[in-house]
Nucleic acid binder design. Sequence first.
DNA 1: ATTATAAAGTATCGAATCGAAACATAAAGC
DNA 2: GCTTTATGTTTCGATTCGATACTTTATAAT
Lengths: 186, 186
Amino acid sequence: MEKVTVFDLIERMSALLRSEERKKCTEFGLQSVHLQILDYLSRCNKYSDTPAALANYLGMTRGTVSQTLLLLEKKAYVNKTTDTTDRRVVHLSLLPNGKAMLQQARPTELFDQAADLLVSDKLSNYDEMLVSMLTALQKSNKSQSFGICKTCQYFTVSPDVHLCGLTREALTEDDSGKICQEHRAL
Amino acid sequence: MEKVTVFDLIERMSALLRSEERKKCTEFGLQSVHLQILDYLSRCNKYSDTPAALANYLGMTRGTVSQTLLLLEKKAYVNKTTDTTDRRVVHLSLLPNGKAMLQQARPTELFDQAADLLVSDKLSNYDEMLVSMLTALQKSNKSQSFGICKTCQYFTVSPDVHLCGLTREALTEDDSGKICQEHRAL
DNA sequence: ATTATAAAGTATCGAATCGAAACATAAAGC
DNA sequence: GCTTTATGTTTCGATTCGATACTTTATAAT
């Protein structure tokens, strides 16, 4: 049963990261949801920085998200602005405070130390394999994949510009590396 | 910066699993901590099935763990028995209800589907690599590694029996595949 | 032996989370 | 225009969580 063990290992790593995250959170007086929200906001593109997308991504109700955002706003971690074209929609953005917190709370040392222990010339292989595993997971999670923009079936790259085939909008290099709620895996 | 991206990928997968877990939880009227506790109890060996170990593993206070366990007991998911030699210690065990819940809530379909998408003859390689990555993470997380018993420096295997070098006790095949709080990576 | 110290677990309290349901507002369909 | 749908907020009650103080048991020190 190779199938099981491979993803068991992923699950184990995930558990390890979660517990590490929890410790960091209590250290900084946060809840792990807060950190997840900050993390998401740092990674999502302009189509996906709304409360509704957050609720979808994290699997929470919109009411709960609204509450949590109030708190994060009070702490000056995030900022709200209403969309200019659709006035129901709110866009969220990370404030400097929030970015700083995220920087501190991510398990950077853990990763760095772990990476040092791995034989470095094997790293490129790891990379490739993990990408295919992640893609496989995202495809299976078909409800809404929340994948990286440039790995989307709607993403097209003309000689000079990146383009989202769904919204027909041009994308910055930066945006195309971020999470999109409209993502459809290839 | 290969180091960063490799573990970034792990982090992405972890985030995906977490959000999947959260959805499952609301579906069954649980909190994600509850599921984490059930999961831990299904994976830990007899030295590590105590409230204190749980608190350590999950990064919660003992008080909080105590509260949560009350609830899980009320729902007939777990069971407490006091240790015979050290009467301060409580051992926890999963009841049938808890096992059933865990079975339902784990992202099995997700994993199965993802595995089907991966080229199967590459799976053994994935396996090997992931093990070394997990080990690296555990080593780095030096506080308490909570690793698998048989990968511990105290684990010894005589011709017929497995043995824990720390407690000098014999171990079942089953036990040696489980999580131990006394684990020290090789 | 007796005392002191440490460890495992519990109880209580207040702040915060969370989901459910009701509500408001804006856009889209017909 | 009227209805339907979508985004977001509010309110409420149940639950979680951490901090603190506490009980009980084991171990160490004298």
